[in-house]
Design a protein around this nucleic acid. Structure first.
Lengths: 136, 136
DNA sequence: GCAATGACTGACAAAATTGTTAGTAACAAA
DNA sequence: TTTGTTACTAACAATTTTGTCAGTCATTGC
């Protein structure tokens, strides 16, 4: 359980307040989360299907990651009627679906440089036009 | 120092192998990293300027975060000539600059839902309120 | 000589995340 | 009656991340 008096917690909260970028990053930062969102998006919407896709995850850890994604409204659980034992379906919300193209762009960004795109420094230091998303 | 024999390390590596999305997420997952990249992009390219912008970060932690960003080639350090004591400039590489619009889209995504965009399930278009799972 | 500066590093402690073990429920098939 | 199924939870241990404290270096200003 998070200690609300810790420096770490206070620092996290101040970053969350500063810009939603920081809370957004924290929402996708769990070990398996990006992959889980992607697999659900692909149609692997059951607990056991996710386990098949991620053979190294334990039940406990998968349940925990799903709960956290649910707490951020990235997905919801729905009971499937007439199943014994009662089955649960994991459904991405609009928020979760909106996240998918961002995860894709992260994937492409990583792949580009992993595949050998040269690292360079922009030659001249011109003033960039920065979209100001924050107050300072 | 990372233990290369741990389950945690093995799981991380297998996710990195599965998709660059997972390594990309891990590159931006440090407590202050997204914010640091953004501030450098804005022109706060010196150690003490970053400290001013992030008054709660300690020198040690800032140095560590910068080193990790450097190890992922998101930024490089350059000595500034004729400065006493020798000053260091932090410069985003092309890889770092390519990351900025992705961080921006994460920011917008977070902001949209923080600002009250309704959560819904696409299939039945039924809006609902998010269950608050944080009990204390 | 002594403090101040900028940009750190090493060693350690605190806190958070991740993984492990054991157990739950309700029903079905063998 | 024992095993199997789906989808969990609680308690605890291992590991990792984050934060803290002290100290470094080469130089300038007082």
């Amino acid at each position: 359980m998070r200690k609300k008096e810790s420096t770490d917690y206070a620092n996290e909260q101040s970053l969350f307040q500063l810009c939603e970028r920081n809370s957004a990053i924290s929402m996708i930062s769990g070990r398996w989360k990006g992959q889980i969102v992607y697999y659900i998006f692909q149609g692997n919407d059951r607990f056991h299907l996710l386990q098949q896709k991620l053979p190294n995850i334990s039940e406990t850890v998968l349940a925990r990651q799903l709960k956290e994604l649910e707490s951020h409204a990235i997905l919801v659980k729905r009971e499937i009627p007439n199943t014994i034992p009662a089955g649960i379906k994991y459904i991405l919300t609009n928020k979760g679906i909106d996240l998918v193209p961002i995860l894709d762009s992260l994937c492409k960004w990583g792949k580009l440089y992993a595949d050998g795109k040269k690292i360079s420094i922009p030659s001249n230091e011109q003033a960039f036009t920065v979209p100001n998303l924050e107050t300072d």
